[in-house]
């Protein structure tokens, strides 16, 4: 498998760590895993942790945007962190930074969601 999805719950936040390549072929795995976690409903917010994400294209934008809409409908927030320069450019080009906050690392993202005391 060229993409691994790791999910971790921290208080009311779901941390989603993506490792590998996120394209049309692998987007389904991300969609299913995140959708399931969102619908299960024990997390209010999501942090996408992208340090190990080596490649992403517009299929990644689509799946992230789709989950953002799902989460927003339930009043949740989404943050991204540890974004590499290539992925950063895609986010910038597509205007995703207008709806997601970006942070250096998971800790900073957690702080921004006010779950770290």
């Amino acid at each position: 498998m060229s993409l691994q999805v790791e999910l971790e719950h921290y208080r009311n936040v779901l941390i989603v760590r993506l490792r590998g390549e996120l394209d049309h072929h692998t987007a389904d795995i991300v969609r299913h895993k995140m959708e399931e976690a969102i619908l299960r409903g024990n997390s209010d917010h999501i942090i996408l942790s992208l340090k190990e994400l080596q490649f992403m294209d517009s299929s990644g934008l689509g799946v992230i945007l789709g989950r953002y809409k799902q989460l927003k409908a339930k009043g949740g927030k989404m943050a991204v962190c540890a974004v590499n320069p290539n992925v950063y450019r895609l986010f910038e080009l597509s205007g995703l930074f207008k709806i997601l906050t970006i942070h250096e690392n998971e800790r900073a993202a957690l702080t921004s969601l006010e779950v770290v005391s």
């Binding site: 294209d57 789709g66 895609l90 080009l93």
Partner: peptide, 14 residues
């Protein structure tokens, strides 16, 4: 409906 973002051509151009 397939969660496409409509960014493919824009990305290639850029």
């Amino acid at each position: 409906e397939l969660e496409r973002s409509g960014m493919g051509f824009t990305i290639m151009e850029n």
